[in-house]
Amino acid sequence: MNKNDFLKLLRTELQDLPADEVNEIIRDQEEFIREAMSAGREEEQVIQSLGSPRDFAKNVKAQQQIDRAHSEPQLTKQMSSTLKAVMAILVLAPFNLIFFLGPFLGIAGMTFGVWATALAALMLLTLLFIAFCLSWLFLSGSVWVHLSTFFSLLGGVALSVLILIGVYYFTKFLVRMTLSYLSWNLKFIQEKA
């Protein structure tokens, strides 16, 4: 494979990235090959030393996905970017995440469970609370019983809100931890000699 073949292949592999980024990468690789050749090295051997264009492209994409997830301000979008970054690293080096994936899926699943439960509880308790407030006047019986029901329901609503806030921050924390783990992992993949 000569220089032009290599660069052309690399461009094809990178095609779903923004054009100016692709141009920048091609420029860098072109400069590298040119410098190596003017230092007296064989074209063929220089190209070989760069590894396959496909691996190079996977690496760049994984990095880009992590960066994107980092800079995403909205939590839901950040979560989906983070999942994509996990996928990108899985494609790049399937065995690298082997010890990560189990605990990650477990904790992510549990977090999702808490979200769902707290949301459901919040909706149900809010409905009950409203229904109770509306019907209070028509209920017979001791006012103390009504008051205690009123405060129990109100307390339940407040508790679900608290749990939701807690799980929101926990999710943020989880995303941040996942991203730093992925960055660290990618660093190792990149420095694999």
Partner: peptide
């Protein structure tokens, strides 16, 4: 001094620049 595969440097440079 250190045996590296030459393709590894550019991803590192890109990351450190980013």
């Amino acid at each position: 001094r250190i045996e590296i595969s030459e393709g590894t440097i550019y991803p590192i440079l890109r990351r450190l620049t980013q």
